[in-house]
């Protein structure tokens, strides 16, 4: 990891509470749709590459910036780097992508992008994250996938 941290003293945000289980969710006959919160729960515990904190605690991902349309098979996620020059933005985007690749049914089309106006090289990063071939190539890189996996590992 880089010797000097990009942002040594980040502001820490409160974690949201565990989702309450509703009675209809325990009913075998009801179909529960995949919704914003469910997808948010998949990504909120991803570890930040720099800090022993989750993306949620750093407010990089927020429930309000997760859009899910179950019927039309679409998931759109915007994430907000902690500072405009964050060098980890691509890595964070990649981690979110990989996590969803492993967690969502394949029928979904997933868009991951930076919240407009929150990063210096927003366009470039978004382009990289949207390019399927570049993502696939990145995942072939064993060093890169190692770092991604560390972000995705559950903290014990």
């Amino acid at each position: 990891m880089a010797g000097k941290l990009d942002n040594a003293n980040p502001v820490i945000f409160e974690q949201s509470k565990e989702r309450q289980v509703l009675p209809e969710e325990e009913d075998d006959d009801v179909t529960d749709k995949i919704d914003d919160r469910e997808v948010f729960d998949m990504i909120r515990n991803i570890n930040d590459p720099e800090h022993p904190l989750t993306l949620e605690e750093l407010n990089v991902v927020e429930n309000a910036r997760v859009k899910v349309d179950d019927e039309n098979n679409y998931v759109g996620i915007e994430f907000t780097p902690t500072i405009p020059h964050c060098s980890m933005a691509t890595l964070i985007g990649l981690s979110i992508r990989v996590k969803l690749l492993r967690s969502l049914p394949p029928r979904f089309k997933v868009d991951v992008s930076i919240t407009p106006g929150t990063h210096a090289s927003e366009v470039a990063v978004n382009k990289q994250l949207a390019d399927k071939e570049r993502v696939a190539a990145a995942l072939e890189n064993s060093h890169l996938i190692e770092v991604v996996n560390q972000c995705l590992a559950t903290r014990k």
Partner: peptide, 14 residues
């Protein structure tokens, strides 16, 4: 079709 099942599936598959 059940969310609680999907939650476990996500954990296990990851």
């Amino acid at each position: 079709k059940k969310r609680l099942v999907r939650l476990e599936a996500v954990k296990a598959r990851n």
